[in-house]
């Protein structure tokens, strides 16, 4: 089945936006259940139209640019973050035939490049707001995201070595016999943790740590510009879930059900897991976050690479 490219692009991006919007509602309901309360359940059946209500509210909020802000950069920052996340979805193979970039041979590197860009959004937002809290949040975000990108990349090397390709399509195909989560368990855990830090989600949401920084890097943002940060964060969660699915959980692969359903099930499961993490775990201190990254995750991912390499060489030699 060959679908024309414009349709693929539009449908994928619309789906990403939809997932991001719906997951804000799902998150609030799930958090409610985790805390023995129903969560927002008034608007529409099961509170499903809460998303619409939120969107309408956000659209009609005054879109205010503080007079002391650096205006062009201030306007640019949320757009950069949002675009970066959306572009990452371009290379994710959702089914064997449904991927915007097709079989891009540097897919994984492209994802990393875009993640690197996402850092800019946060730093620029913090910088251009001309606000102490925002700047602190931006600095934290920069340090956190850059250092966790290191472990993220290192943890992925095991997958790349085993699959022998940077193409996400090939990586999924390489998992047709055994999901990489089993041989690459260490890598998967490191990737998961780094992924949380990368999307600055709770429990690693230090850039926005409400109790210390107001709202961190988006303190000065309002209206739809704030909405873009918000959507980008949830799209980022969906993105990390999609990446973990592709890299470790066999992507679209699975028996009986059609490929798309398998992909969706895995992604939704991971998104719910992210929400569980938010409900269960406290936020670490900033120095704890950093030392955890450099003193534990870095060695673990290096060990993972060495072990994977040794096993691959041994298999090749045998």
């Amino acid at each position: 089945m060959i679908v024309p490219m414009p349709i693929i692009i539009v449908v994928t991006f619309a789906a990403v936006m939809g997932v991001a919007a719906v997951s804000t509602m799902v998150e609030r309901r799930l958090l409610g259940f985790f805390q023995d309360r129903p969560g927002p359940n008034r608007v529409g059946p099961f509170g499903m139209f809460q998303v619409v209500a939120d969107a309408v509210k956000m659209l009609f909020k005054q879109d205010w640019v503080p007079p002391f802000a650096d205006k062009p950069v201030f306007l640019l920052a949320p757009i950069v973050g949002f675009m970066a996340v959306l572009l990452e979805f371009g290379v994710i193979p959702i089914t064997p035939h449904w991927s915007i970039a097709g079989d891009l041979n540097v897919g994984l590197l492209f994802v990393f490049a875009m993640m690197g860009l996402a850092v800019y959004s946060v730093v620029l937002a913090g910088w251009s707001s001309n606000n102490k809290f925002a700047l602190l949040g931006g600095m934290r975000a920069a340090a956190q995201m850059i250092s966790y990108e290191v472990f993220m990349g290192l943890s992925l090397l095991g997958v790349v070595m085993t699959a022998g390709s940077f193409s996400l399509h090939d990586i999924v195909l390489a998992q047709s016999r055994c999901w990489f989560v089993i041989p690459q368990f260490l890598g998967c855990i490191v990737f998961l943790i780094a992924g949380i830090a990368e999307t600055h989600r709770l429990p690693f949401d230090l850039p926005e740590g409400e109790n210390e920084l107001g709202a961190g890097f988006h303190t000065e943002y309002s209206g739809m510009k704030f909405g873009m940060f918000f959507l980008a964060e949830y799209a980022g969660v969906a993105m990390i879930s999609a990446l973990i699915t592709t890299l470790y959980l066999g992507g679209w692969g699975g028996p009986i059900l059609p490929p798309f359903l398998w992909f969706a099930i895995k992604v939704v499961f991971l998104i719910c897991f992210f929400i569980l993490l938010r409900a269960a775990l406290p936020r670490p201190r900033y120095d704890q976050l950093m030392s955890f990254g450099w003193k534990i995750l870095l060695p673990v991912s290096l060990i993972n690479i060495v072990l994977t390499g040794a096993i691959l060489l041994w298999q090749a030699g045998a």
Binding site: L30, F33, Q35, D36, R37, P38, L276, A279
Partner: peptide
């Protein structure tokens, strides 16, 4: 925390 999914709402 996961088990709280199955608790009764307060």
């Amino acid at each position: 925390t996961f088990l709280h999914l199955f608790h009764k709402n307060d």
